[in-house]
Write a protein that binds this DNA or RNA. Structure first.
Lengths: 143, 143
DNA sequence: CTTGTCGCAACAGTTTCTGTTACAACAGGG
DNA sequence: CCCTGTTGTAACAGAAACTGTTGCGACAAG
């Protein structure tokens, strides 16, 4: 499906911030997060920017700047992260409008829209069941 | 997410084939299906080719060639279609390997793998609840 | 043998994603 | 008030995926 890795990057960043918080370091720079994710700091700033707009993290500017969690890790669900970094629907409709003179072409979009809507709801219910605290716990179990 | 429209195209083609079958026309050419979907016949042949490899449709070559359903519409679920046309996982991992010297970088992939696996299972359960016969019925309800 | 259709390769245009560089804006500390 | 380090964002590049198009060989029914 040509899936992107935004949810993965954002969850990784949040899990790392949660662990750093546990260790007493509340504030991390995009450089420090990028070092764990192994990517460019601008990628991290873009991702954390999405999370900031969703109210999941706070940012401080100027000297001594950096990022911190806006909520405790067990209060951030994967659904919160998903909503922060994804906007497109899971399944796309036709790029070009189907033939409206065909009964199937006329009705297929609302029909599939209903099906796709229910599927997204199931996805959201499942995403909501896991928090960043859960992800961090599972992450540290593998050592 | 840069979602593609393959599931939509395939479901549209199957619904149209199901309706044609009801009307007494078992065999459709890719041109006829393309006319309803409003796209190029090669796109339809590619999609129906996926469905043929999955055993959902049959094809006949030579003169008088065309496509027909291999099963009755109520025995084809959206999960069958999904498996036929999609292969990539829903959410991608990091493009580049995370920093393995960081405890989060080391454990994040299996941790997220577990989460993503459960989400895909939920998606699959939901896809399985809808058949092509359901899609066609809903499609014809909108007129 | 003719004809109509499929299978598939090759290619182009568009879009998305990731990564990179560059630089202005900002704010804390001396 | 200036220095310094960090964020925010624009601009750009390369790679990949998706859709669409053309062309042509393979195939089989009549």
């Amino acid at each position: 499906m040509a899936a992107n890795s935004r949810l993965t990057i954002a969850a990784h960043a949040l899990a790392w911030m949660a662990l750093s918080q546990q260790r007493g370091q509340d504030l991390l720079t995009s450089d420090q997060v990028a070092a764990s994710v192994n990517t460019n700091p601008v990628i991290i700033r873009r991702s954390l920017g999405d999370l900031r707009r969703a109210g999941l993290v706070d940012v401080r500017h100027g000297a001594g700047a950096g990022w911190s969690l806006a909520r405790s890790p067990q209060d951030i669900t994967m659904l919160d992260v998903y909503d922060a970094v994804e906007q497109d629907p899971l399944f796309a409709m036709h790029r070009t409008e189907p033939n409206l003179e065909c009964p199937v072409g006329r009705g297929i979009r609302p029909a599939l829209g209903g099906v796709y809507g229910e599927i997204e709801q199931a996805l959201r219910r499942e995403l909501q069941r896991t928090t960043i605290a859960d992800v961090l716990r599972e992450t540290l179990r593998v050592r």
